[in-house]
Design a protein around this nucleic acid. Structure first.
Length: 422
RNA sequence: GCCCCCAUCGUUCAGUGGCCUAGGACACUGCCCUUUCACGGCAGGAACACGGGUUCGAAUCCCGUUGGGGGUGCCA
């Protein structure tokens, strides 16, 4: 948003410095998700292609005294220190030589503060004395992500770093290394509030639906998803929440972003989705819905698509509206049955409807006039009992159009079965 | 434990010292439209966590309390 707002360059940097966790399909998923959401980028880099440069940077730290080698095991460090106070600097001046189990650590300053002016959080500062000497090169020789970041930010001329609040604490490390690399400036940071679950905790892969692909599979539209996401942590000044992305891009400012976390409210997403769904051209809606209504004859679906479009919140719901046409009626709930079929006139209504439907033209208009005609004669509402008998539900599409898609005998059988149950 | 951060309706965004008897949206409730449901229209309930300051005046500034979150890896 910000890159597009300012005419800047959007860089996608794949931070795959951990070989154990990096897999091609994960990177592909990132590409797919971003593309689906309509988010594009101008340049792309993989840190795994640039290990050589990071190692050189680490070597220069070693040469200049900004870093040193350490052969402490985690157990040894733990034994020496109290209550998780971090690494104690044991190897700072031990002149450890390269070898098995040896890492490189960055020497953090013993005094002073490291801070920056965060675009969303204001001034953030950390006391250097509280920063432990952190590892920048694993014993395997592979550099860790924050060295890579410090190097890349500088090398790529990154002006704005926009990321989640969970990265705030590692920022001083990157800033310190940036200085050691010779930089005298800082990029502008914007640490975004996290999106949380109903328990107000950071979304986790195990507990929560965090994969964009899940929402896609549930039948959410990318534009709706993107639009909804935009209302979390930020909002348009004029309160118009649903609008074209171009207008958002125009208004968007990093400094307007909120500091507090936001709950991902699927209910509101569904509302947005419904709005976007209803705004689609009918043909587009049919095309978008067809993968979700695979078991329904396309021509049949198309005949009722307009009515379905007006009712769905997600594409995944689309096929369900014709379930009772392509298959048996659903089993009415006991509650619905009592409420609808409990009326004193219902038996007479069903008898009359069955009798007349058996002989009328098999068109929506004829069926409607039969059902309503009986209602007028008996002075009662007749649609609901018929609907419940034929579809199994109190709600759904306007009844008569889809009803005559069924053979007359099927409809009569369902009505007779209901009559027998009274 | 230590470090960092956050705090307006149930949810989300607005509000940056007086325009606030705090506004919009989602959700909820009622009514209208409609012989279903949904859409749409109208109406309604619903919040400045608490306590101190500063000020003529505070949701807005400061301090504290409480509550919540994030980080604390040879993960990112």
């Amino acid at each position: 948003m910000y890159a597009r707002h300012t005419g800047g360059t959007m860089i996608l940097r794949v931070e795959d410095t951990d070989a154990d966790r990096s897999r091609p399909e994960l990177i592909e998923a990132i590409h797919d998700s971003l593309t689906w959401l309509g988010i594009d980028w101008d340049e792309e880099y993989r840190q795994s292609d640039r290990f050589g440069q990071y190692r050189e940077a680490a070597q220069s730290f070693l040469d200049k005294g900004f870093a040193y080698r350490c052969d402490c095991t985690q157990e040894a460090v733990k034994a020496r220190t109290e209550n998780d106070s971090g690494y104690d600097g044991f190897c700072r001046d031990r002149d450890v030589q390269p070898g098995e189990g040896v890492v490189v650590r960055f020497r953090t300053p013993d005094e002073g503060v490291t801070g920056w002016d965060d675009l969303v959080r204001g001034r953030v500062e950390f006391e250097n004395a509280l920063l432990e000497d952190f590892v920048i090169v694993r014993s395997s020789g592979v550099p860790l992500f924050h060295v890579a970041n410090a190097y890349d930010d500088l090398d790529m001329g990154i002006t704005h770093v926009v990321r989640g609040e969970d990265l705030v604490n590692t920022t001083p490390r990157v800033l310190l290394m940036r200085e050691a690399l010779g930089a005298t400036d800082q990029p502008l940071y914007a640490h975004l509030p996290l999106i949380v679950n109903e328990k107000r905790q950071k979304l986790s892969k195990r507990r929560d639906d965090v994969a964009v692909g899940d929402y896609r599979a549930k039948g959410f539209l990318p534009d709706a998803m993107r639009n909804y996401l935009l209302t979390l942590g930020w909002g348009p000044k004029d309160d118009i929440e649903i609008r074209p992305i171009t207008e958002f891009v125009e208004q968007f400012e990093l400094s307007d972003i909120n500091k507090s976390p936001a709950f991902f409210d699927v209910k509101k997403l569904e509302h947005f989705n419904g709005e976007y769904l209803r705004a689609m051209a009918l043909d587009d809606f049919i095309a978008a819905a067809s993968p979700f209504a695979a078991e329904i004859d396309p021509a049949l679906f198309a005949r009722h698509a307009e009515q379905i479009q007006g009712r769905v919140k997600t594409l995944a719901e689309a096929g369900g509206f014709l379930d009772w046409v392509v298959g048996p009626a659903s089993e009415p709930t006991e509650k619905d049955w009592k409420k609808v079929m409990g009326g004193a006139k219902v038996p007479a209504v069903l008898d009359a409807v069955i009798e007349r439907l058996a002989v009328c033209d098999w068109t929506p208009e004829a069926a409607e006039s039969v059902v309503f005609g009986v209602g007028e004669e008996l002075e009662t509402k007749t649609q609901l009992p018929v609907r419940l008998a034929v579809t199994g539900s109190r709600s759904g599409l306007p009844l008569f159009e889809p009803m005559v898609e069924l053979d007359r005998d099927v409809v009569l059988d369902r009505l007779r079965a209901a009559r027998a149950k009274l």
